[in-house]
């Protein structure tokens, strides 16, 4: 059974907000004692996703919470926007594919850095990406 505590939500409207999301995720990851490498992976994934929310979604929110299951702890981060949505998710998850000027490593890269990854998107409705990283 998974339980969740300490839900915190931050807006993502500017580049500074992206930095704040990174800092929040880092602080929460340290709280549950993720290893340094896992912290870095999670914060990097959060940075990619928060930037996506800002650049592709226009603006949105990041929600961070602490999970606990079978004696292990984890951090869940949810990035939600009400932007144009992604028409072709499979394509968007292909490493190197890019809709703009980036490297195309945002979504595909973030997925490789976390333990759980889910994406919910519809054209015209927006995009929600959920990631989870568990302690080893």
């Amino acid at each position: 059974m998974t339980t969740s505590t300490g839900v915190e939500e931050l807006p993502i409207r500017t580049g500074d907000d992206v930095v704040r999301v990174r800092q929040l995720v880092r602080a929460r990851a340290q709280e549950v004692r993720l290893s340094l490498v896992d912290q870095t992976k999670l914060v990097t994934a959060a940075s990619e996703l928060a930037r996506n929310t800002l650049v592709h979604g226009g603006s949105g929110t990041a929600t961070v919470e602490t999970l606990s299951r079978d004696g292990r702890s984890g951090i869940r981060a949810v990035f939600a926007d009400e932007g144009p949505g992604i028409p072709d998710v499979d394509q968007a998850l292909t490493p190197g594919w890019t809709s703009g000027s980036g490297l195309g490593l945002g979504l595909s890269g973030a997925r490789k850095l976390v333990d759980e990854f889910a994406i919910d998107t519809a054209v015209g409705r927006g995009t929600t990406v959920t990631v989870v990283k568990w302690t080893r």
Partner: peptide, 14 residues
């Protein structure tokens, strides 16, 4: 570059 950063970059494919 810190080890954790290097490991993450490699994982990211960069």
């Amino acid at each position: 570059m810190r080890p954790a950063v290097a490991i993450t970059l490699v994982e990211l494919g960069l």
